[in-house]
Design a protein around this nucleic acid. Structure first.
Length: 597
RNA sequence: GGUCCGGUAGCUCAGUUGGAUAGAGCAUCAGCCUUCUAAGCUGAGGGUCAUUGGUUCGAAUCCAAUCCGGAUCACCA
């Protein structure tokens, strides 16, 4: 892949070799974009070179600058400020860059499946007892975006979802529905299935709390009350029945989960999220038991007097961890061991990414430790993409206090806001209803997705609803707007019969024009860096900067209205290249771009 | 208490292996539409990069200590 830094490094290295007789590794040179308040395109930091030049910083910089100017035609000028060598490249060079990179729809993307690496990425992983919320949205957007980023870096990527469809919490909503539901269904109530089931989960909790209070009034301790509450006992009984495949319970479970899946599908659809494969815990929760037993035989684990099986991970700086209970049943991590082994066996994975919140960092360290202890060579290829929590301005989301932001509500709200803004600004006059719907949905979702993805995944973030529906400044709609503007210009060019294909004309460029070319040619390295760091935020920050730069250019320059044919052609080419980068970058974030808005 | 993560403008965030006078957006104030989309552009104010030491030509960035947040350390998932 072409990189301007690499290109320049080689020239610099050549200069240094010739001047000082020392061959330096080209990528140890420190090259950066020249600060805006200095003249020049790129800057070589010469301080580290003083020990080979054995001269003052200014002198060293000047010597290298002279050499470059004398020997390479693309260097037009240089200046030295303290230990910084600022070099300028010719318009010719930048024109050549534009010619080389322009006109390729897939610019910045590596050919599909070219690395031969197969990566599985698991994300979303919802429970079927309540609808998706804001936290899931961050998870889904991250997982989906990272998958695309890896794809365009040449990996084969399989996106999977592991649905938590069993367990005591599922039984709670089932029980509440059975007791208080009077046959309510999504159809009868016209509620979305996942929301309906979620309501019964909440109902269980309420009734359960009442029972606890009741028992406490009768003299039981908090813990005793929690354990002895009739509802809890019933839920546990239901779980036992489920595990023994009681037909009535299984049927209820299937029905209610069916409602939830219908609801989830809608949410995923609205968000534009999809998976290649969906796993269900009801089918995987027993996996791993035999592996643990084998590990026990091999001495990787040990048994306590009560019969429970443990692993000692103190050598990894972790603790002892139970793998099988005394009664032989498995715990959560047992399943994770099983699914990991199954997936690596079945798909011959090179890497497995788990998109899971940072509160489970310990869990994944334990998982890797166990797999390492079991001797799986790929245990190092599990990667926990650990993202920070999403908080509200008033603090953590708490379901008890009803501050959880529902995913569906949020999406609807964003799209509604987009519609209000558009009609207020008269942006969509003359479009059909369906076209308007499409644009508003694109813009509303763009705002939401960008707002979340622009933040470094590792960091906790604050979701301020008021700021999220702002469509100005560093937002998704701002970037979409830039794209729509360019499309408008390109449409106009076509209408006017202006062709701008072919090589970039030789013209005298403005700073803004050069800046745009500079930015677009760094797109490929941003894409690859984003993959290395599993960080859509890098792509988001890049595309924002590009859009901002383009809007300044747009403000200061005529494009269609430019009368000089060469300049007009050049500006159209630059515009198109920016549009390609914007569209691609947004696509990596899972965000659509409208051709008008 | 142990481990991990974080602390940058009033608020939300950038800051790419240590580089020049620390940047954006929001909010506030002041400007720009007979001209290709004003969801745009320009300008102003706003900072002890938590604190203190250290490393060196040079630190928001690396190291140590301290302070303040958060997560985690379940036979929960």
């Amino acid at each position: 892949m072409f990189s301007i830094e690499t290109y320049l490094s080689e020239k610099f290295a050549q200069a240094i070799a010739s001047l000082y007789g020392v061959t330096l590794d080209a990528n140890t040179l420190q090259i950066q974009k020249t600060h805006t308040d200095f003249k020049g395109d790129f800057t070589l930091v010469v301080f580290p070179l003083l020990r080979v030049s054995k001269k003052k910083p200014e002198e060293t910089a000047a010597e290298i600058g002279d050499y470059l100017k004398m020997n390479f035609p693309e260097f037009s000028d240089y200046n030295v400020v303290k230990g910084f060598l600022n070099v300028s490249l010719t318009d010719n060079f930048w024109g050549e860059m534009l010619t080389q990179t322009g006109g390729d729809e897939n610019f910045g993307f590596v050919k599909a499946n070219s690395t031969g690496k197969h990566v599985m990425i698991e994300f979303s992983s919802p429970n079927t007892n309540k609808p998706l919320h804001l936290g899931h949205i961050r998870n889904n957007l991250l997982g989906f975006s990272v998958a695309r980023i890896l794809e365009v870096n040449g990996d084969k990527v399989t996106k999977v979802n592991l649905v938590n469809d069993r367990g005591i919490h599922i039984c709670k909503s089932m029980l509440a529905w059975q007791k208080y539901g009077i046959g309510e269904t999504p159809q009868s109530s016209s509620k979305k299935g996942d929301h309906l089931v979620g309501e019964y989960y909440v109902k269980f909790d309420k009734k359960y709390k009442l029972e606890i209070e009741d028992l406490k009034a009768k003299g039981l301790t908090e813990d005793e009350a929690k354990q002895k509450a009739p509802l809890m006992l019933e839920a546990q009984e239901m779980l036992r029945k489920w595990e023994s495949k009681d037909p009535e319970i299984i049927s209820l479970w299937e029905t209610m989960n069916g409602w939830v899946y219908e609801g989830f599908e809608k949410t995923y659809n609205n968000l534009g999220i999809s998976f290649e494969k969906v796993y269900y815990e009801s089918q995987t929760y027993l996996l791993g038991k035999s592996i643990v037993s084998k590990g026990l035989e091999q001495g990787a684990f040990f048994k306590k007097p009560d019969g429970s099986v443990w692993v000692d991970l103190t050598s990894f700086g972790l603790d002892e961890k139970v793998l099988l209970r005394a009664d032989g049943t498995s715990v959560y991590i047992t399943q994770d061991i099983g699914t990991a082994v199954q997936r690596f066996d079945e798909f011959h994975l090179n890497e497995h990414i788990y998109v899971v919140g940072n509160e489970q960092e310990y869990h994944f360290n334990v998982l890797k430790g166990i797999l390492n202890r079991l001797g799986y060579s790929w245990s190092d290829h599990l990667f926990h993409l650990s993202y920070g929590m999403v908080n509200l301005p008033e603090g953590k989301m708490k379901s008890r206090e009803g501050t959880v932001v529902d995913a569906d509500d949020l999406v609807t709200e964003m799209i509604d806001t987009a519609r209000e803004m558009a009609s207020e600004l008269g942006k969509l006059d003359g479009l059909s209803e369906t076209e308007i719907d499409k644009v508003c949905s694109t813009v509303g979702l763009g705002a939401l997705k960008y707002f979340i993805l622009k933040v470094d995944p590792k960091k906790n973030m604050t979701f301020n609803p008021r700021e999220s529906i702002d469509f100005n400044g560093n937002t998704g709609p701002f970037i979409q707007y830039t794209y729509a503007r360019i499309q408008s210009v390109l449409r106009k060019a076509e209408e006017d019969g202006i062709s701008f294909s072919g090589n970039a004309p030789a013209i005298q460029m403005s700073e803004k024009e050069k800046e745009l070319i500079k930015l677009t040619i760094t797109f490929p390295s941003i894409v690859s860096l984003a993959a290395e760091q599993y960080s859509p935020a890098l792509v988001a920050n890049f595309v924002y900067e590009l859009a901002k730069e383009y809007n300044q250019f747009y403000h200061d320059h005529y494009i269609i209205r430019e009368t000089n044919d060469d300049i007009r052609k050049f500006r159209l080419q630059v515009s198109q290249q920016v549009a390609v980068c914007v569209k691609s970058a947004m696509w990596l974030l899972g965000i659509d771009v409208p051709s008008r808005m």
